[in-house]
Amino acid sequence: MIEATDLDVFIGEKRIVTGASFEARPGEFVSIVGPNGSGKTTLMRALCGDLDFSGEITFTGRSLSVLKPWQLAGIRAVLPQAASLSFPFTVREVVKLGLTGGRSGVLPGEADRLPERALAKVDLVGFAGRFYQELSGGEQQRVQLARVLCQVWAPVLEGNPRFLLLDEPVSSLDIKHQLTIMRIAREFADRGGGTVAILHDLNLASMFSDRIYVMHRGRIAASGTPAEVLRDELISRVFECAMKVGVPTPMGMPYVLPQTATIAL
């Protein structure tokens, strides 16, 4: 379980997140939503151990500040909002970097084939030999996700649940691959791990999450199940535009919801 209590997060001198309390339990898919600049990434970076904070963050009871980088790498894997790569690695080599910490949780003989399995999961079979820098944005995002999956392949290792921390994992994906990735993350939670995802798509958040945190101006404005959180008043206030939940469009204007999709995996 990831638990943050009374969290203030600082970037330099500036306090970006104020008084946040956050919880991600094993078996759970937790989403963080909120407008641009509301502090979602900052909160997640604090959970990753990248930023200074006051308050307390614990992973399964152990304080974040005493965990070494290699221990943390065995507990959580992180998909950043923007990734960069400075040398011409192949797709397979990038995915294999996920095995750097060596705690993916498969048998020693299986680790070698893990990049291929991870790539298959994110629907990138046949991409292993391509150069990462020559892929499209959405393809790159899925390669990064495959790398993240390699790092914590087994959702539970030696009895301890592990966590996926995903910052906008589907931001540049088409609808089919949005669903593919969301299902992978959901399945990770169903198998005993925990998923925390920052999302901008409220429909996807509603469809896949057990609980949603809504952030607004550096604070957590609300949290709860999708039905509790996705209320007209709350989202209109937070996103600063008047919206209605669950109301069809006027004048028969077409709309497509991910909930209606059936895709083969």
């Binding site: 990753c48 990248d50 980088p69 950043p80 960069s84 996920g98 910490g101």
Partner: peptide, 21 residues
Amino acid sequence: ARGLNALSLGEATAHHLGVPV
């Protein structure tokens, strides 16, 4: 070597991968 490989994804990601950056 391993640390430098991870570093090519950036310092933050190298840290996430378990490298004492």
